[in-house]
Amino acid sequence: MSRVLRAGGLSLRWEPRAAAICLVLAGAALAAAVVVVGTGDVPITVGEVLQALTGQGHPGTEFIVTTLRLPRAVTGALAGLALGMSGAIFQSMSRNPLGSPDLIGFSTGSATGALVQILVLGGGAAAVAAGSVAGAVLTALAVYAVAYRRGHGVHGMRLVLVGVAAAAMLEALNAYLITRAELREAYEAAFWLTGSLNNRGWDHARPLALAVLVLVPLALASGRALRMGELGDDAAQALGVPVQRSRAVLVVAGVGLCAAATAAAGPVPFVALAAPQLARRLTRRTGPQLLPAAAMGAALLVCADLVSLKLPVPVPVGVVTGVLGGVYLAWLLAAEARRGRA
């Protein structure tokens, strides 16, 4: 059900169920983040974490919480949010649940750009972020160019399969870069390449927060165009949506969010694929669910991080999302087959 708020000449449509789900997911992400902050060599209780966050804790605890561990939780939540929204945008534009940036090579390309900076050019955090964005943009351009056919657009399976090929190629390139580096550097790069939130500081969280602040409103502003776009270009045009322009804005926002998340946390697999699908099933709505997908992404990534911290052996968060996400994708394919859609 959707309700409409009217105030004078303005009206705003909102959906109580979707809003409630966003709140619940955000709450889950926050709760998991508090536990993440409390987990480590020095365990800190939830109460102490909350005290430290409000500035009333023990100075030592406060240092551990705000300087050492909080950036990790914030980076995880923001990266998950960005990935979830980016996934929702691309899945809606390709009208295919598998057209998500992690499966069609955008994340891998973004990682390639970052790896070139880390291993070859030796740039700092800002340069890595820039390389990551450049890699994602170039990959997106190449995949769309190859998958595009006049009169058919870039919808559906062709885009996904071309993206899978691009991802395979870029993975080989990433592996090549790793084999060429010094052992220590290569190990760190491999850790990063798996998708990891270890040793994240505020200099990782800050650029990501900036990207989220700019790009999320941009994407939300075009949310209506995205919804109309699912009806087909002609129908959307007829309904007064400037299809080409809003699509360009959405691509910029989607690629930017994916690249910012990758720059901060590495190419964490499957969050961008799974979050929009889960959000859609929870809200029971058709069409793109940008905010629920973003909230779901944040909750997923922080919870996966929590799992990776609680495991007896320390693994990067990307291993957890990779395993869980692969199982989920398998289930998704099987479910689509049952409905005879795929």
């Binding site: 598998l98 991802a167 390449l193 499957f270 990307g318 990779g322 692969g326 394919l333 087959a337």
Partner: peptide
């Protein structure tokens, strides 16, 4: 099995395999 779906199922299994391989390598 439809051709595209088989490749995607392969991509899923591959992603899990890569994640596990990375995890073990890094251990």
């Amino acid at each position: 099995a439809s051709p595209g779906r088989l490749v995607l199922a392969g991509a899923a299994v591959n992603a899990v395999a890569v994640a596990l391989t990375n995890g073990i390598m890094l251990l």
